[in-house]
Every structure is written in C-alpha cells, then in structure tokens.
Design a binder for these strands. Structure first.
Lengths: 207, 207
DNA sequence: CAGTTACGCTACGATACCGTATCGTATTAT
DNA sequence: ATAATACGATACGGTATCGTAGCGTAACTG
C-alpha cells in the first residue's frame, strides 16, 4: 500500500521536521531505536569534528545503523544534521528567587558553568557558520539561542516590574551586556572564564 | 641546482610561514603576482563559503593560477588557508583623544561599523571552529583577535593612569564587557547592531 | 641575449563522500 | 501465525576533493 522505502509515520500529520511526526511511545520499537542510535552518534561526531566534519558514512559506522536505514529516516544529510543540532545545548530553567540580582546571579552561574564544561560548546561556532549561509540552519539556531536568552529577558522584565530597574530599560541590550562577555571569553578571547569574571560582568551590567 | 618544484625563496631565511621569506620588492614579479592572485581568490572564497568550504581546485579556477603553481607555494591546503585567514580583518588603530570616554567611543564606533559592514565577519565563525580542533589555527586566530582587543587594553590602561578608572580595574573584564556584547549581536543574537545599542553598552561598562 | 626560474596544462591515483537500488532477513503488530 | 514493515548488506554511479608527475612554454634576471 505504502511506499516501501521509508518507515510509516503517516498516521499522524508530521509536526517536527526530519519525520518525527509520531509520538515516541506509539512509534515502532525498531524505528525508535534506529533514530536514537543515529542521533546519538551524530551528536558525538558533531562534538568531535564540527558541523562540516560529519559524514553519513561515519554516522553509519559509529551508530551501527545501516546507511540505507539512515536515508529512510532523513531525506538528506542536512536534515539529519539539523535534527541533531536542534537537540544539543543545556536546557535552561528560569529562576524566581525574589530579586533581580539573585535571579541574574543564578542564570549567569549556570551559563558560566555550561560554557566551561559542556561539550556542545565546541560545536556552536560551526553551527553559526552554517547559519551564515543556510537560512534553515539560521532558523534552527535562532531557537537554540532563544533557549538561552529568554530566561534572561524574563527575569529582567520581572525586575522592571518590581522597580529594581528603570521602566525604560533596554532589555535586549542588557541581555547582551550579560551574555555577550561570557560568550566572548569562551569563543573569542579564550581566556579562563572564572567566577570572579562573571561577578565583575554582573556588577558592570546591573551593579 | 635547486629543487625544481618550488619557487626560489632561499636567499633570505624564511620569516613568515607559507614561504614569504623574501621581501615583496625583491621577489620575482611572477611569484608576487601568483601569490597575490591566489590569496585574493582565497579570501573571496572564504567570504562566500567559509573555511571548510574552500577547495584548492576552486581557488585555481577563480584565480587563474594553475593548481600545480599553488602547491609550489604552499605545501598543503591548510597552509594556504592559514595565510589567507591571517590577513583578513579590519586593521585597527589606537586613538588618543585625551579622555578614556572619547577613546572608547571611537574604538566602539569603529568596531560596530566593521561588524555591520565588513565581509570578513561572515568567515570568523568558521575560523574559530577550525581553531577549536587545530592548534595552529587557534594560534593564528589569537593574533587576529589581539588586533582588536589590544587597542582597547591600551586606552583602558591609559585611563587608569589618568585616574579615570580605579587602579584595580580588571582590564580584561572591561574589554570583554565592551567587545563581547557587540560580538554577541553580530554572531549570536543577530539583532541589529545600532549606534544606540553601542552607546548603551558603553554606558553600562564605563558609564 | 642566454640561462635560470616560474608557470600552465593534462593527466593521474587515491580517497571520501552523497544518495540510490536491490534483495533477503528479522522484527513487529494484528 | 501471518502479513506488514523496518532493517542490514552489498554494490553501485557520480562527483569532489587532495596532492603529485611530467613536460613544454613563457617570463624574468643578470
């Protein structure tokens, strides 16, 4: 009845790209296993070699999933890479500790920790590079980025509402003044990202 | 007498990598032309496709210089790319306008201008990506980076000497607080980098 | 002007990669 | 159990790399 070449995921309309239209618990067990193994191996390779250094053949070798099977799930290499990149990053939660200073301190400490320890930080430049030329990669990255900036915006807006910041505060600029220097240290100046440095940046921005 | 495969540059000891041991005015005219054409085409390709998207064959096509000639000048693709990358960027001068605020304003305006207009900004993520895995690319990038940060450090140190900043100012952190947010806007958040934004960042850092 | 030197061209060999086709087998759902 | 479905293995065809070899020609230098 159906096309024989691609796993059946048509029962529910496709929502996310890369054919994950079916909730994971209804999905055929074999499909779930293959997809997970492939995405894990892809992430691993991304960490090691960056976006442009990942090949489907190597993903197949590393994951133990046949290359043909990979192409049954993702129509092209770029679709697979987009899916894999969309799931990297350290999920951030929005603190609510009662004061702007405390919330900012918590967010900045978490960000500093992620930037110095998380493996995905080595991939990000290559993802941004891909986004410089591929609009759909830029879209995907935008969502990743907002996962980091949104909590900052939230706590800053709360701070404004509480009167801890002027009503005409430039929220986006303040976010940049907080996150920017940390990113700068990790990827551009490559100096050590210490707690003292983070404190100093906080002091300058909302001191 | 000599090896027939590689241009003769042995009269003076090699100083810079990628065989530019000979000053440009003593160099054989043909060598000078070839090197220049290749480096120009390479830079062009870097702007268009990023570090990992540049191939020697395409450089040869684009520059009109035979691939064999390219390999007579650079032993490997990576050496050529390193040379080409080392010359991108907008050379920065260190202002001396009498006050810290004026110097900072001048530097930040120039940086903001470069980040919004210069073509090399699209290549930088791929260079940083290369540096994440290749130490010699990281070294090359470090020199590029210092071209931007050094003028900031200079004017800040002068400001400290003048008493415009506390003697215990964390110079590196202040540089990060100034440059970081601008870099953040250009490559990470991709929001418009306006003069108002630059002013706000300056105000927060040295307000 | 003569000898040296750099260059262009073509042709390689080797490798890596993308994406597809085919066919038989194993697993899952019904 | 049985039919539907996903998977694995192998083998492709096509392209794009990297880097080298050989040979004739053009250009520069002294």
């Amino acid at each position: 009845m159906r096309n024989k070449t691609s796993p059946d995921l048509s029962a529910a309309p496709s929502i996310t790209p890369g054919d994950a239209g079916q909730p994971a618990d209804i999905m055929d067990e074999r499909v779930r296993r293959s997809r997970a193994a492939v995405l894990t191996a892809t992430a691993e390779l991304l960490f090691e070699r960056g976006y442009s250094g990942v090949s489907v053949d190597e993903i197949s070798r590393r994951s133990g999933v046949a290359k043909t099977t990979i192409y049954r799930h993702w129509p092209a290499r770029t679709d697979l890479l987009r899916d894999a990149c969309a799931n990297i990053g350290t999920p951030q939660t929005t603190p609510d500790l009662g004061s702007l200073r405390a919330d900012i301190a918590a967010l900045m400490a978490a960000l500093g920790e992620a930037l110095t320890t998380a493996r995905w930080t080595s991939v990000l430049p290559s993802i941004i590079d891909a986004g410089e030329r591929a609009p759909e990669m830029a879209d995907m990255y935008r969502r990743l980025q907002q996962g980091y900036s949104a909590p900052f915006e939230t706590v800053i807006r709360r701070g404004i509402a509480r009167g801890e910041l002027p009503a005409d505060t430039d929220v986006a600029a303040l976010v940049a003044a907080l996150i920017g220097p940390l990113f700068y240290r990790r990827w551009f100046s490559r100096e050590p990202l210490t707690e003292g440095f983070v404190r100093e940046i906080i002091r300058l921005a909302v001191g």
